[in-house]
Every structure is written in C-alpha cells, then in structure tokens.
Amino acid sequence: MSITDHDAIGAYRTAFTEEKHVGISLLIPGIELNTDGIDSELHILGYCFDHI
C-alpha cells in the first residue's frame, strides 16, 4: 500500500507511525508532484524514496 500526498510527505509520516495499529504490514512511501505541461497539468508520482 502507498499513500501519496500533493507536494508533501506529511500524510505518509502520519500513516507510517499508525500502520501497525491498523494492520498494514507494508507501507511504501510515495509523493505526487504537480507541474504544468505543454497542454495541461501533469501529476508525477514517486515511490520508494528515503523518507527519513
């Protein structure tokens, strides 16, 4: 399971501290970065980064 937040990792940090309380055995760090493309907005997802 991965939780992505817009341009931040605050939601991941909160979920990481609570994962054992809700039965999640693996939580992959993720982030969503938004930028403007030529024709529209782009949403770029990043996973498995060092969150510490």
Rank of each mutant, 00 (worst) to 15 (best):
M1E: 08
S2V: 06
S2Q: 02
I3L: 15
I3W: 02
T4I: 12
T4P: 05
T4Q: 09
D5A: 13
H6A: 08
H6R: 09
D7Q: 06
A8G: 08
A8E: 13
A8L: 05
A8D: 14
I9T: 02
I9F: 01
I9R: 04
G10R: 11
Y12A: 04
Y12S: 02
Y12F: 15
Y12E: 05
R13I: 11
T14R: 09
A15F: 11
F16K: 15
T17H: 06
T17M: 12
E18M: 14
E18W: 11
E18P: 03
E19N: 08
K20Q: 12
H21C: 05
H21I: 03
V22Y: 03
V22T: 06
V22S: 04
G23H: 06
G23F: 00
G23T: 11
G23Y: 02
I24Y: 03
I24H: 03
S25H: 04
S25F: 04
S25C: 02
L27V: 01
P29G: 02
G30N: 01
I31S: 05
I31E: 12
I31V: 15
E32N: 14
E32F: 00
E32Q: 14
L33K: 01
L33T: 06
N34Q: 13
N34V: 04
N34R: 13
N34Y: 00
T35D: 14
T35A: 14
D36W: 07
D36F: 04
D36M: 12
D36I: 10
G37C: 11
G37P: 10
S40D: 13
S40F: 03
S40K: 15
S40M: 08
E41C: 03
E41H: 07
E41N: 11
L42I: 13
L42G: 04
L42Q: 13
L42H: 09
H43Q: 14
H43V: 10
H43P: 02
H43R: 14
I44Q: 10
I44A: 08
G46Y: 01
G46W: 01
G46H: 01
Y47I: 14
Y47G: 04
C48P: 03
C48N: 15
C48K: 11
F49Y: 10
F49P: 03
F49Q: 06
F49R: 03
D50K: 09
D50Q: 12
H51Q: 11
H51M: 12
H51S: 14
H51I: 13
I52V: 10
I52F: 03
I52W: 03
I52E: 07
